[in-house]
């Protein structure tokens, strides 16, 4: 894979402009769809007795929607620090696979920039990065232009949700809960490379649904991802486009 050095984004050649514009085009719909959830998380933080500053701090430091959602569901006083950390780990364990899959595309980034950049590896940022890497080298400037608006929207909207309080409605009322599924389906249609993609995806879907039925919690994501990767490993690289 052509892992592009972040330093290749020399400011003088203006490449970052094109990268930024391209990233903004794809990240804006994702950020807009996320707003109702950010507002809801802020509201739930308020209901559980967190101050505005604490709600803001949680979004800024954790930056993981589903983990924050479940943490606020489990929240009690005194604060169960260890179980909250364990829950965050289990829910976010899928990011281990995501980081592994992203590695070949960012291997050329300077390490001192790659590790801080990975802080922002939310599902949507990862998915949009992989979609980009399917066609072009993934540059740090592109990744940054994905992460910055998404991160700032997340923090500001969870804070706003905390301030608005009871005015927040359930996102599912307006179908916003489906927006994430729709975004991921659109990204998936871009990852389609013909028959070689089909077998891992079928293995993943079948495993995920089975585990989802049998085991409570987010294990179905890991199980499906591993099953798909296993089948991909068996059939080797067919759609290698570099």
């Amino acid at each position: 894979m052509p892992a592009d050095d972040g330093r290749a984004d020399a400011v003088r050649d203006g490449a970052w402009r094109g990268e930024t514009a391209a990233a903004l085009r794809v990240v804006v719909p994702a950020a807009v769809s996320m707003v109702p959830f950010a507002l809801l998380i802020g509201f739930l933080a308020r209901q559980n007795g967190l101050s505005t500053a604490e709600a803001l701090l949680m979004s800024a430091m954790v930056f993981a929607g589903s983990a924050q959602f479940v943490a606020l569901d489990l929240w009690s006083w005194p604060v169960p620090v260890a179980s909250l950390a364990l829950t965050a780990f289990i829910i976010n364990a899928r990011h281990i696979l995501m980081g592994a899959a992203l590695m070949p595309h960012i291997a050329g980034w300077p390490k001192r920039l790659a590790y801080p950049a990975l802080f922002f590896l939310a599902d949507e940022i990862w998915a949009l990065s992989m979609a980009r890497a399917g066609g072009k080298p993934l540059r740090l400037s592109y990744y940054a232009a994905l992460a910055a608006p998404f991160y700032l929207t997340w923090i500001s909207m969870t804070t706003l949700g905390h301030l608005m309080g009871a005015a927040i409605r359930d996102p599912a009322r307006y179908g916003f809960d489906f927006a994430f599924t729709a975004i991921f389906l659109v990204i998936l249609s871009g990852l389609w490379r013909g028959r070689s993609t089909l077998r891992p995806w079928i293995a993943s879907a079948a495993t995920a649904v089975a585990v989802w039925y049998l085991v409570a919690g987010p294990w179905y994501i890991l199980a499906g991802g591993i099953a798909g990767a296993f089948v991909g490993g068996l059939q080797g690289v067919h759609a290698d486009d570099d």
Partner: peptide, 11 residues
């Protein structure tokens, strides 16, 4: 690794 992104999204 090549199969992983699609598989995780599918899951």
């Amino acid at each position: 690794l090549a199969a992983m992104p699609g598989s995780i999204l599918v899951a």
